[in-house]
C-alpha cells in the first residue's frame, strides 16, 4: 500500500459504519424512517461525513425504490460515505440485530397461536396495531393525496384489496403503469394546448 495512513482511515471508517448501523438498528424498533433522526445526528452533525442536502437525497431515494427502507438507507449511506464496501458493511450492521432476535424468538416460541390467554392478549394488541396503522395512513395521506388522481388510485387500490382480494403485486405493477399513462396524457394535452395557442397567435 502506498499510503498506510489512508488505508487505515478507510478501515476505521468501515468499522465505524458497521458499529453505528448495528447500534441504531438494535435500538430502533419498527425500523424505517424512525432511524432517520439518529442517522442524521451520527453522520451529518457528529462526523460531518455527509451534508444535510445529501441526507435529503437519501430520504427521497429510499422511499422511491423497492425494498426495506432501513436496509435501503444503510446501503445508500454506506455507499456515499465509503463506497461499495461501505454499503455492504452498513447493511450487514443493520440486519444482524433483528436477525439474531427473530432467530431466538423462533427457536423459543414455535407457536404463534393456540394458547387461550395468549390469543386474547394478541387480539387486543392487533386492535392497537390497527389504530397505529390508521394514524400513519392519516399522516401520509396529507403529503400523498394531492388532487383527484392520487385519491382515485388510493381508493381503487384499497377497495380492490379489501373487497375483491386482488394480488398486491399486481396492484403495484398496475399503479406504476397508471402513473406513466397519466403523465403521458398530461404531456400530450400540454403539447396540444401549446400548439392551439400558437395557432391563435397566427390568426
Amino acid at each position: 500500500m502506498k499510503n498506510p495512513a489512508k488505508r487505515n482511515g478507510r478501515e476505521n471508517r468501515l468499522w465505524t459504519l458497521f458499529q453505528v448501523f448495528f447500534k441504531i438498528s438494535a435500538v430502533s424498533v419498527g425500523g424505517g424512517l424512525t432511524m432517520l433522526p439518529l442517522m442524521d445526528r451520527e453522520f451529518v452533525e457528529k462526523r460531518n461525513w455527509m451534508s444535510e442536502s445529501d441526507m435529503v437525497d437519501v430520504v427521497a431515494i429510499v422511499q422511491s425504490v423497492p425494498g426495506i427502507i432501513a436496509v435501503n438507507m444503510a446501503i445508500l449511506i454506506g455507499q456515499r460515505t465509503a463506497g461499495l464496501a461501505g454499503a455492504l458493511v452498513a447493511s450487514l450492521g443493520v440486519v444482524i440485530p433483528p436477525v439474531v432476535v427473530i432467530v431466538v424468538i423462533a427457536a423459543l416460541l414455535f407457536q404463534l397461536s393456540g394458547n387461550a390467554t395468549a390469543d386474547h392478549i394478541f387480539t387486543g394488541v392487533r386492535a392497537a396495531v390497527s389504530a397505529l396503522i390508521l394514524l400513519s395512513v392519516i399522516k401520509m395521506s396529507k403529503s400523498i393525496l394531492k388532487g383527484p388522481i392520487p385519491i382515485v388510485i388510493a381508493l381503487v387500490g384499497f377497495l380492490l384489496l379489501v373487497v375483491f382480494d386482488v394480488d398486491a403485486v399486481g396492484l403495484i405493477v398496475a399503479s406504476a403503469f397508471a402513473g406513466v399513462l397519466i403523465a403521458g396524457i398530461r404531456r400530450l394535452r400540454k403539447k396540444t394546448l401549446a400548439s392551439c395557442a400558437e395557432e391563435e397567435k397566427g390568426k
Binding site: I144, I172, A176, A178, G179
Partner: peptide, 19 residues
C-alpha cells in the same frame, strides 16, 4: 411518473392493512 402511480397505491395498501 411511475412513482406518482405507486405512491397513492401504497397508501391504499396501508389502509387495507388497517382492515
Amino acid at each position: 411518473a411511475v412513482l406518482s402511480g405507486i405512491r397513492p397505491a401504497t397508501l391504499g395498501l396501508i389502509a387495507a392493512a388497517v382492515i
